[in-house]
Every structure is written in structure tokens, then in C-alpha cells.
Amino acid sequence: MSRWEPNARERLQQAALDLFVERGYESTAVAEIAERAGLAKSTFFRHFRDKREVLFGGGELLGELFTTGVAQAPGDATPLAMVGAALEAVQAAFPAERRDWVRQRTAVVQANDELRERELLKAASLVEVLVRALRERGVAEPVARLAAALGYQAFPAALARWTEPGERREFAELARQELARLHAAVAKLG
């Protein structure tokens, strides 16, 4: 195997996901992932700390996109509109060609207790990113926390719809719809 290969990270991610789907997460070793990708095991560890990171390594990008979206919302935007801008910004992480990968990743995560727990931790950290971004825009703590929680409820719902077979709409459109649905539900609380 050569010392340097183009697209090593992407090849490792795809090889890992393919093996997780075929054999299960628990039954897949890092060495098998590297072999499937045509790379050395050491190359795997240059890109990922462990095999979980193949599935969860994009959290930093989502956090940055959430923060950027809130920061770039118009000055007179409501807290929920700022969260909507954050969800729109996340569109960059979900181009159409990633739809199948995200669908398979979701299935792998849902089939494993450890990965589901990790997904919940990731969700909690992303809610905190949204809260911090809203607070930096001057939104009071309880309002920021509630808006962030609603935004994060809209995020996985939109993602689930985006990965449905036959779905072709962009993630941002589905996220807007989900946030509007949740906003309407909150209004019914009285």
C-alpha cells in the first residue's frame, strides 16, 4: 500500500459503513476497514481515533454551521428565526450525494445501543452549541435553551424525512417545514 492515497478519509468512511451494514458494527475491526479501503491500519488512525468516529466525526462541522447560521441571521430575527437560519446553514453538510450514506449511517446507529447513546451525547452537545450561539446574539437563557431544543427536535425529524426513499427535496426545505410544525405545536400549548 502506498504511503499517500487520495480521498483516504472518504474511502475509510465508505469502507467502514459498508462493513457495518454487512457484518454489524460490533463485528467489524479497524484492520478490516483499512483493508477494505485499500489502506494501512495506521492510515485509519491518522483520520479517526476509533471506529465510532467514522460515524460521529462530523459533529464539529455541524456545530460550526449552526453557529454561523445563527450569527448570520438578520439583526431583527426572532430566536426561532435564528435557529431556522442555523438549520438552513446545515444544508451544506447534506448534499444530495450523501443521502444514501446518511441513511445507512442512521440504520447502523439505531441497531447498536452504544452508538445510540453516543448519538444522544452528540445531540446534547449540538443543543449547547445552539444555546451559546443564541446567547451571543443577546437571547436570554431560558428562551435560548427552548429555541435550541426546538431546533434540535426539527433537525433529526428533517434528517429522517430527507433520507426517506424517493425523497428529493433539499434538507433545508424539510428543516424549515419541521421547525414550522414544531412552532405550531408550541402555539397550541396555550
Rank of each mutant, 00 (worst) to 15 (best):
A29K: 15
A184D: 15
R161Q: 13
L115N: 09
L120R: 15
V143D: 01
V129T: 09
E164M: 15
R36V: 07
R52A: 06
D100Y: 06
L80W: 09
A37F: 13
A184S: 14
A37H: 14
E178D: 08
L174E: 01
A81C: 07
K41C: 01
P79R: 06
A185P: 04
I33S: 01
G58C: 02
A107T: 12
L115Y: 08
V143S: 00
G151F: 05
Q110D: 14
A184T: 14
A8C: 11
F48A: 06
A34F: 11
A107H: 10
E167C: 13
E64L: 01
R181S: 13
E26M: 11
A111V: 13
L159H: 04
F66H: 00
R49W: 03
A77K: 06
Q110T: 07
F171P: 07
L61M: 03
Y25G: 01
D76I: 11
A16E: 01
R3G: 12
R135Y: 04
R23W: 08
Y25P: 01
F155L: 11
D113Q: 13
E22A: 15
T68H: 12
L189K: 07
A31K: 14
L65S: 02
H47I: 05
L134H: 08
E117P: 00
Q91Y: 05
E119P: 00
A154Q: 05
S42C: 03
L115M: 07
E141G: 03
